[in-house]
Amino acid sequence: MNIYVCVKHVPDSAATITVEGDNAINEKITWLMNPYDEHALTEAARIKAAGKAVEIVAVCLGKPAAENTLRSAMAMGADRSILIETDQYHDSIITARALAAAIRKDGTPWIIFTGKESIDSEGMQTQFRLAQHLGLPVATNVIKINADSGGVTVECEREAGTIDVYRMAAPCVVGAGKGLNNPNYPTFPDIVRSRKKPVKRIDLAEQAIDRPAAGMQIRELVPAVEQRTPKALAGSAADIAAQIVDILKNEAKVI
């Protein structure tokens, strides 16, 4: 029984993004593991540490450089990893097919973790498509999980103050939310150990996935420019309060 963790290689949230050509970005920036996937990995490691006999396998569809994210995953507790290599950008319809095919071929999943969303394409959907391809139940934005051999009981934060509790039969797909845990960042010895762990590379083109009839194509990418012109509000606290009320009333028209 394996725990699979889908990890995406994404630009650092603090990186400056510049557009190249019509629909691509300059990739010479810092790339990291998608932050939600760090929560997923930390949770997988926690479940393993609790004595459940499992192997943790990190899976990624990405360009060759995505190996770095798989190395981080192995430093954070994955035992081995699979890189589905490609030289292009792919939408979540293809991504989910590729991840499903790689997991199906590799072994028997117990839990498949993903993050709740990726911070680059902000798709919010890969976990659901993956679950559909594998015929498994799925829950997302999971902030608490109790796993046993039969399945998992999860708590999902739907919105402020609303928690849904679901029971899913194993195998199942779990989309990690931020509230799940504090990521367990690797120590130097972890990093050294991870260098010896195996990365299996498979070429996306050689994966037996059907060509979908549907797709999502990025036609154009432009920088979001919205430089505002700040105006100062000054005076006593009461003066400032009055000016804010005036803005709310006469400019924003919300009162």
Partner: peptide, 26 residues
């Protein structure tokens, strides 16, 4: 079947065209 959405945490705006038999928009 063309939309605009923000990507890279709001740093870029992407124009995306969709193909298929059904179209779902959030």
């Amino acid at each position: 079947h063309r939309v605009k959405t923000s990507q890279y945490s709001g740093k870029t705006i992407a124009t995306i065209s969709m193909t298929g038999s059904h179209f779902i928009y959030g």
